[in-house]
Computed example of a mutant assay.
Amino acid sequence: MGDMGDAADLPDLAYVGAKIVHSTFGPGKVTFVGPYKGVPACSVQFEGHVKALELQYAIPHVRLAEDEVPIQPKKRGWFGR
């Protein structure tokens, strides 16, 4: 089996339950993260189908869904505007 490496090496979206959006397959939910055929991968439940995605190839095409992204406070300017 392949080595998944340190958890710090995994992208932010590589956890079970993460809601993601893939540029081709659309919105989905991560159902598995771990080695698949010896490489780091994740399984994603998209609408009507499940896909196994190798992390190294999926990362450029995947982002966290809007409701998963932590809200960051607006940075205020020098005078508090």
Rank of each mutant, 00 (worst) to 15 (best):
V16E: 15
V16Q: 09
G17T: 11
G17Q: 07
G17F: 07
A18H: 03
A18D: 05
A18N: 04
A18F: 01
A18T: 03
A18P: 02
I20N: 02
I20S: 03
I20A: 03
I20F: 03
I20P: 02
V21C: 05
H22I: 05
S23L: 06
S23F: 06
S23E: 15
S23T: 15
T24W: 01
F25M: 08
F25V: 01
G26I: 08
G26C: 08
P27M: 01
G28D: 01
G28L: 01
G28Y: 02
G28A: 01
G28M: 02
G28F: 00
G28V: 00
K29C: 07
K29I: 15
K29W: 00
V30S: 02
V30Q: 03
V30N: 04
V30A: 04
V30Y: 00
V30K: 03
T31E: 12
T31A: 10
T31C: 05
T31Q: 07
F32D: 05
F32T: 02
V33K: 00
V33D: 01
V33S: 00
V33I: 05
G34Y: 11
G34M: 10
G34P: 05
G34V: 11
P35A: 09
P35E: 14
P35Q: 12
Y36N: 11
K37R: 14
K37T: 08
K37I: 09
G38I: 11
G38N: 09
G38H: 07
V39G: 01
V39E: 05
V39Y: 03
V39F: 02
V39R: 05
P40E: 09
P40S: 13
P40N: 10
A41I: 03
A41H: 02
C42N: 01
C42E: 03
C42V: 14
S43M: 11
V44C: 07
Q45G: 02
F46Q: 08
F46H: 12
F46N: 07
E47D: 13
E47Y: 06
E47I: 10
G48S: 08
G48C: 10
G48T: 09
G48E: 08
G48W: 08
G48K: 06
H49T: 13
H49E: 13
K51G: 01
K51T: 10
K51A: 14
L53W: 06
E54V: 15
